[in-house]
Nucleic acid binder design. Structure first.
Lengths: 345, 345
DNA sequence: TTGTAGGCGTTATCAA
DNA sequence: TTGATAACGCCTACAA
C-alpha cells in the first residue's frame, strides 16, 4: 500500500503546460504569466499537490532534516531537550529524525551512519555511556557534516558544545549540603568517562575541598551503565550506603528513581537518615515524599540553543572554525529532602 | 557548511569501472566478478562510502522512514510510546521523524503535510486536542497513505487504531473507589471530544451507574486544552472542588501535576479530604506523597503494536481493507492516594 | 513568458 | 561479467 502522489508532470499535463512552468508557478519564481500562475496554483490546491521533497532534496543537496541521537527517548531530560530541538527546527521548516542508542555504542554508530546516509543536514548528539572511541564521528565531522554535541560531549572533536554547567550545579548542591551541616557526602553518578559526570564529580570534589573535607572513595560510586541497568544501579546504592554517608548527590533521573525506591523499601528516611539532592528534570520532584531538592537543567533551552548553533553551521558558506562551548547555569531547587543538620563539632 | 559525500560515481571512476558495476557490488546483486566485487567493497569501505539514500528513495519510491505526530514530546506517555515506535522501526531499518502539535490543529495539519511531502512511508498519529475536522487526514488516507491512529483516534477514518482500554481503565478505577467507600466521585478530563477522554468518561459513568450512583454534573470537568493550559486546568480543579467530591479520577499527567500542586498549596489532604486516582505513566507515581493510585497505560506496547500494524499496511501489496481496533488493558496500581472510607449509610 | 534539456545519485534494463 | 542508458521528480540554464 503506497501513497499515490501527484507529480509536477501530472499537473503540467492536465493544464497543458510544461513542467518548468508549473515549477515556476509553485515557487513563485521568475517572470511568469499572472494567469498561468493562477491556474497552476488553483489546480495544485484543488488536487492537493505536494512537491516531492526527496526529489527536491536530491536536486538541492539538502534534505531539510536534522538528526538527533540520544540514549533514551523516554527520559525526562532528553524528551525536554527534544522538545527544544523540535521547536527550533519546526520554525526553520526542518524535520527532526530521532534515534536512540539505549546506551549502546554499536547502536550509536549505526544510528549516526544511518542519519548521514539519509542526508540529514546536520546531527545533534549526546554521546551514549557505551561510547569511548569517537573516531567514527570525527571522520564524519572532518568531511564537513555539521555536528553539535549536547549534554555529553567529547574533547576529541572540536565543534559546538551545549550543556548545563554541571560543575556549578554539583558545586552549588554540595555547598548547600555542607552549609546545611552535612559532611559525609556521597556521590552517585553514571558512567565515569562521560563528560557531564566528570564535571559533576569535579564540582562535588571542589566544593568538598573548599570546605576542607577530603574525598572518601567509599562514598563515591559510578555506574558504567548510567543508571540504565537496574541491578548495577541498585548495587551502587547499596554499597554507597554501607559507607554510612549522611547525604548524597545523585546524578540522573534513573538513579534517582532507583535510589528513592531503595530507600523506601529499606525504610531509610530522607532527609533524617540521608539528605538527598538529585540532578533531575522531573516535573514531579516537588510532589515527591519528601519534596526533592533538585539540580534542574534547562533542557528545553539546551536543545533550542544547540539547534540554533547547528543551523549556523548548516547555513555557513565556509567551514566553521570557531566553536562555542555554551553552559547554561543549573538551578538548585531547595526542598525538604535536605534538612538542617545540627552541627556538633 | 555541507557534508562532502562520495558518490557511486567517484568510486566507479577511481576503480575504472562503471557505476552499475559498483552498484551491483554494493547490493550484492547479480552475477558479478568475485574480485571486482572485492575491489569495490574494499575501496568503499576504505573511503567510508555511504550510498545516498535520498537518491535510492527517489528511485525506489520509498523513503524507509515513518512519521509520528503527538501533542507533546516531553510527556511521559508520549515519550514512552515513541520509545516503542522507535524500537520497532529501528529493527526494520526505518527512520522515525517526530513532530509535535502542542495541541494545535493548524500545527497538526502542517506537520502531516510536511511528513507526506517528505515521502514518509506511513504516519502514526495521536490527534491533538484542537482537532475536530479530520478531512485533511481522510484525503491523505484515501490516497493510500498508510496511517495508524494511536491513543486519540477518529471514528471518521477507518484504519487501524491502537490504544489502551480507556473504558476499562476508568471503570476499574471508579469501581475501586466505590468499593473503598467513596460515592461523590468527580471526573477531571481533557478535551471532551477526544476519543480517549470520551471512553474514560463512559467507563466512569458506567461504574457509577452500576453502583446506582447518578451522575452529578458539578463533579464533572473537562479541559478543552487537555491540561496544556495551566490556567484552564487550575480553574477546572478549583470548580470541581467547590462541589465537594470525596474522590476524583484525573485523566492525564499534566492535569495530575496541576491537581497535586493545587491540593498541596491549599492544604487539601489526599486521601483524607479527597481520594485520587490518575491516568498517569509517571515512573515516579509510587514515590509521590502520598503514593499515587494510577491507571497505567502500556505505552511502549501501544507504540510498538501500532508500528507493527503500520508496517503491515506499508508492506501490503494491495490496499488494506480490514482494520484492527486494538485495546491494551490498563493496569490499576493501588496505592495510598485512595484510602478506606468508613461507610455510614 | 514559456518550453527544452540536462542533471542531482541511484538502480534496472538492455545491449555488448 | 560489465557498460551504457533511461528513469525516479524536481529545478534551472538556456533557447525560443
Amino acid at each position: 500500500m503506497r501513497f499515490e502522489k501527484i507529480t509536477i508532470k501530472d499537473v503540467a499535463k492536465a493544464l497543458g503546460v510544461s513542467t518548468s512552468t508549473v515549477s515556476r508557478a509553485l515557487r513563485d519564481s521568475y517572470e511568469i504569466g499572472a494567469d498561468t500562475k493562477k491556474r497552476v496554483l488553483e489546480y495544485s490546491q484543488k488536487m492537493n499537490f505536494m512537491p516531492n521533497q526527496m526529489a527536491s532534496s536530491l536536486k538541492a543537496r539538502t534534505s531539510k532534516s536534522i538528526g538527533i541521537v540520544v540514549s533514551e527517548i523516554a527520559n525526562s531530560f532528553f524528551s525536554q531537550v527534544m522538545n527544544g530541538i523540535e521547536s527550533v527546527a519546526h520554525r526553520k521548516g526542518y524535520h527532526v529524525i530521532v534515534t536512540q542508542t539505549h546506551g549502546c555504542n554499536s547502536r550509536e554508530i549505526a544510528n549516526v551512519i544511518h542519519l548521514a546516509s539519509h542526508s540529514v543536514d546536520g546531527i545533534l548528539i549526546s554521546l551514549s555511556p557505551g561510547t569511548i572511541d569517537v573516531s567514527y564521528l570525527k571522520e564524519l565531522f572532518d568531511k564537513k557534516m555539521p555536528l553539535v554535541f549536547f549534554d555529553r560531549v567529547s574533547d576529541e572533536i572540536n565543534t559546538h558544545k551545549v550543556m548545563c554547567d554541571n560543575f556549578q550545579g554539583a558545586y552549588d548542591a554540595v555547598s548547600y549540603l555542607i552549609e546545611s551541616g552535612y559532611k559525609k557526602i556521597a556521590f552517585l553518578g553514571g558512567a565515569k568517562h562521560l563528560s557531564n559526570i566528570q564535571e559533576r564529580f569535579a564540582g562535588y570534589s571542589e566544593a568538598l575541598a573548599y570546605a576542607g573535607i577530603s574525598l572518601n572513595d567509599e562514598y563515591i560510586k559510578f555506574c558504567e551503565q548510567g543508571g540504565l541497568h537496574q541491578e548495577e544501579s541498585e548495587q551502587a546504592v547499596k554499597s554507597m550506603l554501607e559507607a554510612k554517608p549522611d547525604a548524597v548527590l545523585v546524578c540522573g533521573d534513573r538513579l534517582t528513581a532507583t535510589s528513592l525506591k531503595y530507600f523506601k523499601q529499606n525504610n531509610i528516611k530522607v532527609p533524617e537518615d540521608l539528605a538527598m539532592i538529585c540532578f533531575s528534570n522531573q516535573d514531579f520532584a516537588e510532589l515527591l515524599d519528601p519534596p526533592l531538592t533538585t539540580v534542574y537543567q534547562p533542557a528545553f533551552e539546551i536543545g533550542g540553543y544547540a539547534t540554533d548553533l547547528l543551523f549556523q553551521m548548516i547555513n555557513s558558506k565556509s567551514e566553521v572554525k570557531k566553536f562555542e562551548m555554551k553552559k547554561f547555569p543549573c538551578q538548585l531547587n531547595k526542598r525538604a529532602s535536605v534538612g538542617q543538620k545540627i552541627i556538633l563539632s
